[in-house]
């Protein structure tokens, strides 16, 4: 009879080992990204376009760092399963599937985003100090709760989107043995397009000229009932939010867990 085993000590050891094993590559990726961003930003300042750098840069580049690095790191989180020898070692390491799964979830969904937020905060601080060395002009500092314009989401608001997207990368990390990042990226695109297609199809069925109106700015000729719009703007949005940011990610995590339990060599 199968017994669900859960031991915090073992999870702690798994997380510690994982961090020790991957810290160098993570640090290099982070430093490389910051160097690239700095070079790009200084180039903009030199070429006479400092406005973007002073006011919007951090809010634009932070999502890039969070999504790209987070996605790459998560899609590589089960690298142990790629090479046969290491795969055997990892699968035979005395920890239950649940413990191994939780340790990876903690790293990919908690530790990595927190480190990315913190490291970007310190990068922005140093960058701003260096940039404002010879100028009196203020530079908009980076804050996870601040947005430069009302149209740009606050960095903290990106977190649910990142976490939901990250579940796709997590499943991809377990499923694919080679080129995990690119295959997962394709998977993510397929998922987005599928969602978009289902949504479009549904809208087309209820409001045939919805897209004409949305993209061309024309007026809707076939008005659905008020109760439809009420549902669309209220219940549907809530439902979509729950499905996309809660149910679907949870299903993907459950699928990842079972995929891990099915792994053989």
């Amino acid at each position: 009879m199968k017994k669900l085993e859960f031991n915090m000590n073992r999870i702690g050891h798994l997380i510690k080992n994982d961090i020790q094993k991957n810290k160098k590559s993570f640090l290099f990726m982070l430093l490389g990204s910051f160097i690239l961003i700095s070079l790009f930003a200084f180039m903009l300042v030199i070429t006479g376009e400092p406005h973007f750098v002073r006011e919007e840069m951090h809010m634009t580049f932070f999502p890039f760092i969070l999504f790209l690095l987070g996605f790459i790191l998560t899609s590589m989180s089960f690298r142990e399963l790629n090479e046969t020898g290491e795969r055997m070692f990892y699968l035979n390491l005395p920890a239950s599937h649940l413990e191994k799964f939780i340790s990876k979830v903690v790293i990919s969904f908690f530790i990595v985003p927190i480190i990315l937020y913190c490291s970007y905060f310190f990068f922005a601080l140093i960058f701003n100090i260096v940039l404002s060395w010879n100028t009196d002009e203020a530079i908009v500092s980076f804050s996870v709760f601040k947005s430069p314009t009302p149209y740009v989401p606050k960095p903290i608001q990106l977190l649910p989107i990142f976490l939901a997207t990250n579940t796709v990368a997590f499943l991809g990390a377990i499923m694919f043995r080679t080129l995990e990042f690119f295959k997962t990226l394709v998977g993510l695109m397929v998922l987005y397009f599928s969602i978009f297609f289902i949504f479009s199809l549904a809208m087309f069925l209820f409001v045939p000229d919805f897209f004409n109106s949305f993209f061309m700015g024309t007026e809707l000729k076939q008005h659905p009932s008020d109760s439809f719009w009420e549902f669309f703007n209220g219940g549907f949005k809530n439902l979509a939010f729950i499905v996309l940011f809660l149910i679907l990610p949870l299903l993907l995590l459950v699928a990842s867990y079972f995929k891990l339990t099915e792994k053989e060599v």
């Binding site: 199968k2 085993e5 073992r10 699968l91 005395p94 920890a95 599937h97 413990e99 339990t261």
Partner: peptide
């Protein structure tokens, strides 16, 4: 099932 108590 690769239980931890088995693997250890």
């Amino acid at each position: 099932y690769r239980q931890a108590s088995f693997l250890s």
